[in-house]
């Protein structure tokens, strides 16, 4: 089983992120998503759409600047979670 990391730093590609995640899970890959910058604006939508499909974490610093908080289904974190994702992932894509 391989690991896919998805860095989300814009709010433009919700459907692509969901599509890639579901396709990766369908063939047995683990998916981790880290949201920062404007990507945190997708936090609740991604949690709603990908519950159980991916491990979701977001940058608290970015989120607080955008009045995003208490996202159910995602872990509030820091750039450390991004570093862990990049370190552990076999492949990384950016949306």
């Amino acid at each position: 089983m391989s690991k896919l990391g998805i860095l989300v730093n814009t709010d433009k590609y919700l459907e692509d992120i969901v599509g890639v995640t579901e396709a990766a899970k369908a063939v047995g890959h683990d998916v981790t998503i880290f949201m920062m910058d404007d990507g945190t604006l997708l936090a609740q939508d991604l949690c709603d759409r990908l519950s159980g499909e991916a491990q979701l974490t977001y940058c608290e610093h970015s989120a607080s600047l955008r009045q995003v908080s208490d996202v159910e289904g995602a872990t509030s974190g820091s750039q450390y979670q991004n570093a862990v994702m990049m370190h552990e992932a076999d492949k990384v894509v950016v949306f």
């Binding site: 910058d37 820091s78 750039q79 991004n82 570093a83 990049m86 370190h87």
Partner: peptide, 27 residues
Amino acid sequence: PKKIAVIIRDRQDEALRMAVGLTLEGD
């Protein structure tokens, strides 16, 4: 350790902040 390249284009501040953070796992 992984080798990670961060390409800075239009959002310099966030790219640089992220790059610093990515060092935290020893990459």
